[in-house]
Protein backbone atom coordinates (compact mmCIF):
# COMPACT_ATOMS: atom_id res chain seq x y z
CA UNK A 1 0.00 0.00 0.00
CA UNK A 2 0.93 3.64 -0.37
CA UNK A 3 1.21 6.04 2.55
CA UNK A 4 2.87 9.36 1.91
CA UNK A 5 2.73 12.48 4.06
CA UNK A 6 3.82 15.84 2.76
CA UNK A 7 4.44 18.71 5.20
CA UNK A 8 3.02 21.49 3.08
CA UNK A 9 -0.15 21.13 1.04
CA UNK A 10 1.03 24.08 -1.05
CA UNK A 11 3.74 21.96 -2.71
CA UNK A 12 1.23 19.47 -4.06
CA UNK A 13 -1.24 22.21 -4.97
CA UNK A 14 1.38 24.05 -7.02
CA UNK A 15 2.55 20.92 -8.84
CA UNK A 16 -0.98 19.94 -9.84
CA UNK A 17 -1.81 23.51 -10.84
CA UNK A 18 1.28 23.49 -13.09
CA UNK A 19 0.29 20.44 -15.11
CA UNK A 20 -3.49 19.99 -14.96
CA UNK A 21 -4.35 21.96 -18.10
CA UNK A 22 -1.81 20.11 -20.22
CA UNK A 23 -2.59 16.58 -19.03
CA UNK A 24 -6.07 16.42 -17.44
CA UNK A 25 -6.02 12.64 -16.82
CA UNK A 26 -2.85 10.81 -15.88
CA UNK A 27 -1.32 7.98 -13.91
CA UNK A 28 0.71 8.72 -10.80
CA UNK A 29 3.24 5.89 -10.65
CA UNK A 30 4.16 5.20 -7.04
CA UNK A 31 7.07 3.02 -5.98
CA UNK A 32 9.80 3.05 -3.34
CA UNK A 33 11.64 5.94 -5.02
CA UNK A 34 8.64 8.27 -4.92
CA UNK A 35 5.68 9.44 -6.96
CA UNK A 36 6.25 10.00 -10.66
CA UNK A 37 4.12 11.05 -13.59
CA UNK A 38 4.74 11.08 -17.30
CA UNK A 39 2.12 12.07 -19.84
CA UNK A 40 1.81 13.59 -23.29
CA UNK A 41 -0.80 16.19 -24.07
CA UNK A 42 -3.62 15.22 -26.46
CA UNK A 43 -1.91 16.61 -29.51
CA UNK A 44 1.42 14.83 -28.79
CA UNK A 45 3.26 18.14 -28.99
CA UNK A 46 4.23 18.37 -25.31
CA UNK A 47 5.14 15.91 -22.57
CA UNK A 48 5.12 16.40 -18.81
CA UNK A 49 7.46 14.44 -16.54
CA UNK A 50 7.16 14.99 -12.80
CA UNK A 51 8.93 13.42 -9.85
CA UNK A 52 8.28 13.84 -6.13
CA UNK A 53 11.08 11.89 -4.47
CA UNK A 54 10.31 9.69 -1.46
CA UNK A 55 12.57 11.82 0.76
CA UNK A 56 10.24 14.76 0.23
CA UNK A 57 7.64 12.87 2.25
CA UNK A 58 7.75 11.82 5.88
CA UNK A 59 6.77 9.10 6.33
CA UNK A 60 6.85 7.49 2.90
CA UNK A 61 5.84 3.88 2.40
CA UNK A 62 5.19 2.14 -0.89
CA UNK A 63 6.32 -1.47 -1.10
CA UNK A 64 5.10 -2.26 -4.61
CA UNK A 65 4.35 -0.38 -7.82
CA UNK A 66 0.96 1.29 -7.67
CA UNK A 67 -0.55 3.33 -10.52
CA UNK A 68 -3.09 5.93 -9.46
CA UNK A 69 -5.21 7.03 -12.42
CA UNK A 70 -6.32 10.51 -11.50
CA UNK A 71 -8.45 13.20 -13.10
CA UNK A 72 -6.49 16.31 -12.17
CA UNK A 73 -9.57 18.54 -12.17
CA UNK A 74 -11.11 16.28 -9.52
CA UNK A 75 -7.86 16.33 -7.55
CA UNK A 76 -7.76 20.13 -7.82
CA UNK A 77 -11.27 20.37 -6.34
CA UNK A 78 -10.23 18.26 -3.37
CA UNK A 79 -6.90 20.08 -2.90
CA UNK A 80 -8.82 23.37 -2.72
CA UNK A 81 -10.23 21.99 0.54
CA UNK A 82 -6.69 21.95 2.00
CA UNK A 83 -5.06 25.05 3.38
CA UNK A 84 -1.54 25.79 2.17
CA UNK A 85 0.05 24.98 5.53
CA UNK A 86 -1.91 21.75 6.09
CA UNK A 87 -0.07 18.44 6.11
CA UNK A 88 -1.43 16.05 3.50
CA UNK A 89 -1.35 12.27 3.83
CA UNK A 90 -2.05 10.24 0.69
CA UNK A 91 -3.16 6.63 1.13
CA UNK A 92 -4.04 3.93 -1.37
CA UNK A 93 -4.35 0.14 -1.41
CA UNK A 94 -2.25 -2.08 -3.64
CA UNK A 95 -5.05 -2.33 -6.23
CA UNK A 96 -6.89 0.86 -5.43
CA UNK A 97 -10.18 2.17 -6.76
CA UNK A 98 -9.86 5.35 -4.71
CA UNK A 99 -7.20 7.64 -3.24
CA UNK A 100 -7.59 8.76 0.35
CA UNK A 101 -6.39 12.24 1.32
CA UNK A 102 -6.19 13.49 4.90
CA UNK A 103 -5.50 17.17 5.58
CA UNK A 104 -4.23 18.00 9.07
CA UNK A 105 -3.74 21.38 10.64
CA UNK A 106 -1.74 21.02 13.84
CA UNK A 107 -2.52 24.54 15.01
CA UNK A 108 -6.25 24.19 15.25
CA UNK A 109 -6.47 20.39 15.51
CA UNK A 110 -8.58 20.20 12.36
CA UNK A 111 -8.56 16.97 10.41
CA UNK A 112 -10.41 16.59 7.12
CA UNK A 113 -10.59 13.49 4.98
CA UNK A 114 -11.51 12.97 1.34
CA UNK A 115 -11.57 10.07 -1.09
CA UNK A 116 -11.42 10.52 -4.82
CA UNK A 117 -12.36 7.86 -7.31
CA UNK A 118 -9.57 6.59 -9.53
CA UNK A 119 -9.76 5.86 -13.24
CA UNK A 120 -8.21 3.20 -15.46
CA UNK A 121 -5.90 5.13 -17.72
CA UNK A 122 -4.18 3.30 -20.50
CA UNK A 123 -1.00 5.31 -20.85
CA UNK A 124 2.08 4.54 -22.89
CA UNK A 125 5.33 4.60 -20.96
CA UNK A 126 7.95 6.43 -22.95
CA UNK A 127 11.70 6.18 -22.58
CA UNK A 128 13.19 9.65 -22.46
CA UNK A 129 16.79 9.37 -23.65
CA UNK A 130 19.58 11.12 -21.75
CA UNK A 131 20.47 13.94 -24.08
CA UNK A 132 23.61 16.05 -24.24
CA UNK A 133 22.08 19.37 -25.16
CA UNK A 134 23.92 21.93 -27.27
CA UNK A 135 22.70 24.75 -25.04
CA UNK A 136 21.37 25.00 -21.49
CA UNK A 137 20.04 28.35 -20.36
CA UNK A 138 19.20 29.05 -16.73
CA UNK A 139 17.22 32.22 -16.11
CA UNK A 140 14.83 33.63 -13.50
CA UNK A 141 11.41 31.97 -13.72
CA UNK A 142 9.62 35.32 -13.61
CA UNK A 143 11.74 36.59 -16.50
CA UNK A 144 10.89 33.61 -18.68
CA UNK A 145 7.20 34.00 -17.84
CA UNK A 146 7.28 37.67 -18.76
CA UNK A 147 9.04 37.05 -22.07
CA UNK A 148 6.54 34.34 -23.07
CA UNK A 149 3.58 36.49 -22.07
CA UNK A 150 4.89 39.61 -23.83
CA UNK A 151 5.83 37.90 -27.10
CA UNK A 152 2.61 35.85 -27.19
CA UNK A 153 0.77 39.13 -27.76
CA UNK A 154 2.49 39.52 -31.12
CA UNK A 155 2.89 36.01 -32.41
CA UNK A 156 2.09 32.33 -32.04
CA UNK A 157 5.77 31.34 -32.26
CA UNK A 158 9.06 32.34 -30.72
CA UNK A 159 12.55 31.69 -31.99
CA UNK A 160 15.02 30.95 -29.21
CA UNK A 161 18.60 31.62 -30.23
CA UNK A 162 21.39 30.71 -27.83
CA UNK A 163 24.93 31.96 -28.29
CA UNK A 164 27.77 32.25 -25.81
CA UNK A 165 26.86 35.92 -25.28
CA UNK A 166 23.33 35.11 -24.17
CA UNK A 167 19.90 34.17 -25.40
CA UNK A 168 17.55 35.98 -27.77
CA UNK A 169 13.82 35.37 -27.93
CA UNK A 170 12.27 36.81 -31.07
CA UNK A 171 8.93 36.71 -32.80
CA UNK A 172 7.08 38.24 -35.70
CA UNK A 173 3.37 38.58 -36.30
CA UNK A 174 0.71 40.53 -38.18
CA UNK A 175 1.18 43.74 -36.19
CA UNK A 176 4.97 43.69 -36.25
CA UNK A 177 7.82 41.96 -34.52
CA UNK A 178 9.66 41.93 -31.21
CA UNK A 179 12.59 40.45 -29.38
CA UNK A 180 14.06 40.18 -25.90
CA UNK A 181 17.77 39.50 -25.41
CA UNK A 182 19.22 38.39 -22.11
CA UNK A 183 22.97 38.70 -21.94
CA UNK A 184 24.82 36.23 -19.78
CA UNK A 185 25.41 37.78 -16.36
CA UNK A 186 25.94 36.80 -12.77
CA UNK A 187 24.15 38.51 -9.91
CA UNK A 188 26.44 37.96 -6.91
CA UNK A 189 23.93 39.11 -4.28
CA UNK A 190 20.96 37.32 -5.79
CA UNK A 191 22.26 34.34 -7.81
CA UNK A 192 18.69 33.34 -8.69
CA UNK A 193 18.47 36.49 -10.83
CA UNK A 194 21.47 35.49 -12.98
CA UNK A 195 21.29 34.35 -16.59
CA UNK A 196 23.66 31.53 -17.44
CA UNK A 197 24.26 29.89 -20.81
CA UNK A 198 26.17 26.59 -21.12
CA UNK A 199 26.90 26.12 -24.78
CA UNK A 200 28.68 23.59 -26.93
CA UNK A 201 27.27 24.94 -30.20
CA UNK A 202 24.90 27.79 -31.09
CA UNK A 203 21.24 26.81 -31.39
CA UNK A 204 18.26 28.48 -33.01
CA UNK A 205 14.85 26.78 -32.72
CA UNK A 206 11.23 27.88 -33.02
CA UNK A 207 8.49 26.92 -30.55
CA UNK A 208 4.79 27.52 -29.99
CA UNK A 209 4.24 30.30 -27.45
CA UNK A 210 0.87 28.85 -26.43
CA UNK A 211 2.66 25.84 -24.93
CA UNK A 212 5.45 27.88 -23.35
CA UNK A 213 2.89 30.15 -21.69
CA UNK A 214 1.21 26.99 -20.38
CA UNK A 215 4.52 25.68 -18.96
CA UNK A 216 4.92 28.95 -17.06
CA UNK A 217 2.07 27.82 -14.79
CA UNK A 218 4.89 25.97 -13.00
CA UNK A 219 6.58 29.29 -12.15
CA UNK A 220 5.71 29.08 -8.45
CA UNK A 221 7.74 25.86 -8.10
CA UNK A 222 11.17 27.40 -8.50
CA UNK A 223 12.96 30.73 -8.73
CA UNK A 224 14.89 29.63 -11.80
CA UNK A 225 14.05 27.62 -14.90
CA UNK A 226 16.42 25.81 -17.24
CA UNK A 227 15.83 25.61 -20.99
CA UNK A 228 17.84 22.89 -22.75
CA UNK A 229 18.06 22.92 -26.52
CA UNK A 230 19.62 20.98 -29.35
CA UNK A 231 18.83 21.38 -33.01
CA UNK A 232 15.92 19.21 -34.14
CA UNK A 233 15.11 17.70 -30.73
CA UNK A 234 12.41 18.67 -28.24
CA UNK A 235 13.05 21.60 -25.92
CA UNK A 236 13.34 20.68 -22.24
CA UNK A 237 11.95 23.21 -19.76
CA UNK A 238 12.82 22.19 -16.21
CA UNK A 239 11.59 23.51 -12.88
CA UNK A 240 13.63 21.96 -10.06
CA UNK A 241 12.15 21.56 -6.58
CA UNK A 242 13.87 20.60 -3.32
CA UNK A 243 12.75 17.00 -3.67
CA UNK A 244 11.89 16.55 -7.29
CA UNK A 245 11.13 18.32 -10.53
CA UNK A 246 8.56 19.19 -13.15
CA UNK A 247 9.91 18.88 -16.70
CA UNK A 248 8.17 19.82 -19.90
CA UNK A 249 9.27 18.66 -23.34
CA UNK A 250 8.08 20.54 -26.41
CA UNK A 251 8.45 19.52 -30.06
CA UNK A 252 10.00 22.28 -32.17
CA UNK A 253 8.29 23.91 -35.12
CA UNK A 254 9.70 22.86 -38.46
CA UNK A 255 10.25 25.12 -41.47
CA UNK A 256 8.12 24.02 -44.39
Amino acid sequence: MLEARIEQASVLKRVIEAIKDLVPDCNFDCNDTGIALQAMDNSHVALVAMLLRADGFSPYRCDRNIALGINLNSLTKVLRCAQNEDMITLKADDAPDSLNLVFENTENERISEYDIKLMDIDQEHLGIPDTEYSASITLPTAEFQRICRDLSQLSESVAIEATKEGVKFSCSGDIGNGSVTLRTHQNVDKPELSTKVDLTEPVNLTFSLKYLVNFCKASSLSQTVTLSLSNEVPLLVEYKMDNGYVRFYLAPKIDE
Binding site: M40, S43, H44, V45, A46, L47, E124, H125, L126, G127, I128, P129, S157, T206, S208, V233, P234, Y249, A251, P252, K253, I254, D255, E256
Partner: peptide, 14 residues
Protein backbone atom coordinates in the same frame (compact mmCIF):
# COMPACT_ATOMS: atom_id res chain seq x y z
CA UNK B 1 5.21 29.81 -41.57
CA UNK B 2 6.66 26.93 -39.57
CA UNK B 3 4.70 23.75 -38.99
CA UNK B 4 4.27 22.30 -35.49
CA UNK B 5 6.28 19.11 -35.03
CA UNK B 6 5.17 16.25 -32.78
CA UNK B 7 6.94 14.27 -30.11
CA UNK B 8 6.18 10.87 -31.64
CA UNK B 9 9.45 9.40 -32.79
CA UNK B 10 11.58 11.32 -30.30
CA UNK B 11 10.72 9.05 -27.38
CA UNK B 12 10.57 5.27 -27.53
CA UNK B 13 7.50 3.46 -26.25
CA UNK B 14 8.71 1.10 -23.52
Amino acid sequence: SAQQGRLDGFFKVL
